[in-house]
């Protein structure tokens, strides 16, 4: 039904960037979690999720992002998002995620803000 979900991971001066492609459902959440674990184990503490190509999400997928957020908050790390479509921003607001993770319009804006942290 949905196109295959993929997540590409890159690093920019200690900030781990997760670029997602496709519907963020339970399976996508698990795929993100797996990549996050690898990055965390390599010492990553700042994580940016670029959702430009993920215009549909569901709360099960986002719940897995909350699992990730729990660990990041506990380790004094940073989680941020960029390129979110309005319904994704609204969903994050309703769920309260924006109290703990910032949302930026663009990747460059996010990276600049995260470097200052």
């Amino acid at each position: 039904m949905a196109e295959t979900f993929t997540v590409n991971v890159a690093q920019d001066n200690g900030i781990w960037i997760f670029e997602t492609h496709g519907y963020i459902n339970n399976l996508a959440g698990e795929a993100i979690s797996e990549k996050y674990r690898e990055a965390f184990d390599q010492g990553g503490r700042q994580f940016l999720f670029d959702l430009e190509d993920s215009k549909i999400i569901n709360s099960v997928g986002v719940s897995i992002l909350i699992e990730i957020l729990e660990e990041i908050v506990e380790r004094n790390g940073t989680m941020a998002f960029c390129h979110c479509v309005p319904i994704v921003k609204k969903t994050f607001n309703i769920m309260g995620i924006t109290q703990y993770a910032s949302i930026y319009e663009t990747r460059s804006e996010a990276l600049a803000a995260m470097r200052e942290n």
């Binding site: 909350i66 957020l69 729990e70 609204k90 769920m95 309260g96």
Partner: peptide, 24 residues
């Protein structure tokens, strides 16, 4: 559901569906 509770260790993170439906 409340995010501050969901972020506690060992707490199940799911259970947002009704809240989202009612909010949207």
């Amino acid at each position: 559901p409340k995010i501050e509770e969901k972020l506690r260790p060992g707490v199940r993170k799911r259970g947002w569906g009704l809240k989202l439906m009612e909010s949207l």
